[in-house]
Write a protein that binds this DNA or RNA. Structure first.
Length: 467
RNA sequence: GUCCCCAUCGUCUAGCGGCCCAGGACAUCACCCUUUCACGGUGAAGACACGGGUUCGAUUCCCGUUGGGGACGCCA
């Protein structure tokens, strides 16, 4: 049997971390088994579904590099089919009209809770004659679920989870206005789309019981279920707006690489021995559901940062420059010219070794494109004492005589100066760093000088030297 | 409240009865490398929630307690 899985988000918000991980697991499972990964937008809630959310979800998946097969299925367009199945059930006596008003149901729940009973619809219209229907109430169609015995979810991750049927009530298939509920559409669509494996968050586990009852009523073969654990915030609570970034695109904006995100998300709830850095090709080769754990995990930015640093170091320099250029130009207030771009490209090797996010990378890259005179930060100013500035002006003289403008030659000059003046190399180099970058930390300063070029280097040095 | 699930270092996890006085990674600390900061290297500190069983032997199996999470909509 070839594998067909789906990611089925509801377009009521952006693609959050949990959804992204669910999508990733589905995608990996499909790719590993050479199956099909489908995307279905669950937009049956017309009030809350928005085009903006659909766009955000699609953009998020694309950014993460999770490509889906076939056309996207929009659940709402299938409402006719959903109603058809509900009517079929009605005809077969496996579903019935329920005329309860929302207020009535509300009162029912309150009473049950007060008595400590499990909450749910009590089935009062199950066998009642529709002739007794109160006027003016548009009935819903409910599934006539079994009242005894138990329903079992055979789950690839959770094992066999069982629940007594008395705990389950007759779920609504079609609303009073004739539109299908989520519970009903999911089953019909998964069946019609030939879904073989339903991989989703454990928050859907209890839904699975009711959905299985519907599969049984229709005599449809059950898909395999795999309910994966949830991702919590650093404080252990459910991921929410309080934790800052919620949408996956926020992580893109914070400067994370999609491959780093994939690797990080993969390791949340799934492991392959002691392996940590797992690229996508390796993940596809290794991923399977049997290695998915059952306990929830917390989102840890520090580890994401570390992984991101790793993938940035491995990333192509041209790609990195392209990624940070918009941010750099925004900071500058104007476009970066060819000279600047050339410097950025040459500087990448030194820069990317020191950054954990693209934002940090862009910030540190500013040293190559900033206009003179540079603004010096506090520490840089402290380094540039009168003595340091005079040493600097001496080095300007030395540098002007230099014929070969290369990092090794530039370093040799400072070694000579240090020796002449009885200073440590750092005492000569650090003022240069301050003058050339406006800061006390940067890539190796001779590398910076080489990339900046003779003219720019000398100009920046003169800006702060004395004499 | 009812039902379901979970429980190894601060975090992510390995472990599927003896190889474990528990391994790796991130974070932390120290040292090395070094013109700064990183990277890299070496090392340190750091966990089987608790209580009962089962067993010759439990982190691993069973029960309970505690703690955490999830679900209880004509939302998805």
């Amino acid at each position: 049997m070839s594998v067909v899985v789906r990611f089925a988000p509801s377009p009521t918000g952006f693609l959050h971390i949990g959804g992204a991980r669910t999508a990733l697991f589905n995608w990996l499972y499909a790719r590993h088994h050479k199956g099909v990964f489908r995307l279905r937008i669950e937009d049956t809630d017309r009030q809350r579904s928005t085009q903006a959310a659909i766009d955000a979800i699609i953009a998020g998946l694309k950014w993460l590099g999770l490509d889906w097969d076939d056309e996207i299925v929009f659940q709402f367009t299938r409402a006719g089919r959903h109603a058809e199945v509900a009517r079929e059930l009605l005809t077969a006596g496996k579903a019935y009209y329920c005329y309860c008003t929302p207020q009535e149901l509300q009162a029912m729940r309150e009473e049950q809770r007060a008595k400590g009973l499990p909450e749910g619809y009590d089935g009062r219209w199950r066998d009642r004659d529709p002739a007794e229907a109160p006027p003016g109430v548009a009935p819903v169609i409910r599934l006539k679920a079994p009242r005894s015995g138990e329903t079992v979810v055979p789950d690839l991750v959770q094992g066999e989870v069982r629940k007594a049927n008395v705990e389950l009530d007759d779920m609504v298939l079609l609303r009073g206005d004739g539109t299908p509920t989520y519970m009903h559409s999911v089953v019909v669509d998964d069946h019609d789309m030939g879904i073989t494996h339903v991989i989703r968050g454990v928050d859907h586990l209890t839904n699975a019981f009711r959905q299985i009852q519907l599969y049984s009523a229709m005599n449809w073969a059950l898909p395999r279920f795999a309910h994966i654990p949830l991702i919590h915030g650093a404080d252990g609570a459910k991921l929410s707006k309080r934790h800052g970034a919620v949408g996956i695109e926020a992580y893109r904006d914070m400067g994370y690489l999609p491959e780093a995100m994939r690797n990080y998300l993969l390791r949340l709830g799934w492991a392959h021995g002691d392996d940590e850095t797992i690229d996508t090709a390796q993940a596809i080769a290794w991923f399977d559901l049997d290695a998915v754990g059952r306990s929830a995990s917390r989102f840890d930015t520090a580890k994401l940062d570390n992984l991101n640093g790793h993938y940035m170091r491995a990333a192509d320099n041209e790609r990195l420059v392209a990624l940070i250029l918009p941010r750099i130009e925004a900071g500058l207030g104007h476009a970066v010219d060819a000279t600047g771009r050339g410097r950025l490209l040459k500087g990448m090797d030194g820069l990317k070794l020191r950054a954990r996010t693209l934002v940090e990378l862009a910030d540190s890259a500013m040293i190559y494109v900033r206009a003179r005179p540079l603004t010096l930060d506090q520490k840089a100013q402290a380094v540039l004492t009168a003595e340091a500035r005079s040493t600097l002006s001496y080095s300007v003289d030395m540098l002007m005589k230099l014929t070969e403008w290369s990092a090794p030659a530039l370093e040799q000059i400072d070694r000579t100066i240090a020796e002449q003046r009885g200073l440590k190399l750092g005492q000569v180099a650090q003022p240069k760093r301050a003058a050339l970058t406006g800061s006390t930390t940067s890539p190796p300063i001779y590398e910076v000088m080489e990339i900046l070029g003779r003219e720019e280097t000398l100009a920046r040095l003169r800006d702060v030297s004395i004499g």
